[in-house]
Design a binder for these strands. Structure first.
Lengths: 214, 214
DNA sequence: TCATTGTACATCGTATACAATATACATATC
DNA sequence: GATATGTATATTGTATACGATGTACAATGA
């Protein structure tokens, strides 16, 4: 089948760009954003900007204070812990759902992200580390072939990214957790799901919370 | 503190009304909706309608086909099964998170929804049964005091409702599952979480899937 | 000096006009 | 008659104008 050409609307483009800016840390949590300013920057009218903003608010990345202003969402410690709890559960579910065939079909992609992540770490590109880390985990979830599960994890991942950026984890700790990816894959390959889940628990709860334990 | 007066914007109102219409089954899955028609019906311009539609699409209840039309989302069998799997996991997590104190603080509300649900069943008001059933489960999740978890469950619940309406489960089966609510509460009260989770598994997987098992 | 009130400004909320595109149907061509 | 093509129409996409509201700050009075 030929690839269908789809004309992306301006609001879709603004949505994507804005999302990237938020997730990359270019727009930090708490930053106020103005429709008019964005309209000027992107060279479009306020209408597509508004639509993008409304959607991102629905997604959970922006907070709209009616008739006043719009700001980038900031994740609280409590919420980070809440998310970690849910995330552990859902990624464990994903692991349980991955059978031999699903593993074979996805192992290449997952391994690539793990490698990319380590490479980014080795050259000290934190932004890329975070991005590839997310992609690794999401690829793992995608392998479970459960769209509802994937959707949810993707949404949570966005908020996790907000936190990661704000958090500034020390280099050695970050490196330690990144290296667990390989172990996770190995255990999955061996079919030792229990060990894999145990390691995942440590990986995620520490990866995230800072002060938060379990 | 005095209750703050908040002026709800038109788009917020449209959003709520439209959502209700979808979740109540007034607007069935697959139905096409037109911005202009809605604008006429609600007596507002297309702008607030558009914003509401975009947000509902982001929420997952509407599907936008660019430059063509907007339609109400239809849940597939596969997706229903996917959701059930996730939902079981998350509600189990909720149950694990509810300690004695949280139980005491929320038991009244949960019990009320269970009773409301049974009452609605007894008078044959299916719409109300579904609504109260949702409220029962969501109240249970809320008791876990994990906002991320609650958010996710609420989103899933919306799609579950779409399915319930389309599905038309036989009266006796529906009644059977509704009556499990009381048992669930009893087990929770006794602190027998394992039994509670086992029952929950049956309750949810059968509640939903039709042909779907496990 | 401090609290209150008024005013200017910036920003958002909504309506409307127009442009761009998809869809359906009629028409022409083979 | 079937397929392809052109055209009309309906619908969405975007820009812009105007109105409403929140916010900050100055002016006024106690």
């Amino acid at each position: 089948m030929a690839t269908k050409i789809v004309q992306k609307s301006l609001s879709d483009q603004v949505y994507s760009l804005l999302k990237d800016q938020i997730l990359s840390g270019e727009l930090q949590g708490g930053t106020n954003i103005s429709e008019e300013l964005l309209a000027e920057q992107f060279g479009v009218s306020r209408t597509p900007i508004r639509e993008a903003i409304r959607r991102l608010a629905e997604y959970g990345l922006l907070i709209i204070t009616p008739r006043s202003h719009v700001s980038v969402y900031t994740v609280t410690e409590k919420e980070a812990a809440d998310i970690a709890k849910v995330r552990v559960n859902l990624e464990m579910l994903a692991i349980d759902s991955i059978d031999e065939e699903a593993y074979q079909r996805n192992v290449e992609e997952i391994a690539r992200y793990a490698a990319d992540c380590q490479y980014a770490m080795s050259v000290g590109d934190r932004a890329s580390v975070f991005e590839k880390d997310s992609l690794f985990h999401l690829a793992l979830v995608r392998a479970a072939a459960n769209s509802a599960l994937y959707d949810i994890c993707q949404r949570m991942d966005a908020k996790i990214q907000l936190l990661r950026i704000a958090q500034n984890l020390p280099e050695d700790e970050l490196s330690y957790y990144i290296n667990q990816h390989v172990q996770l894959m190995q255990l999955l390959k061996q079919g030792d799901k229990d060990s894999c889940k145990r390691l995942l628990y440590e990986h995620i709860t520490h990866d995230l919370g800072g002060g938060f334990k379990g």
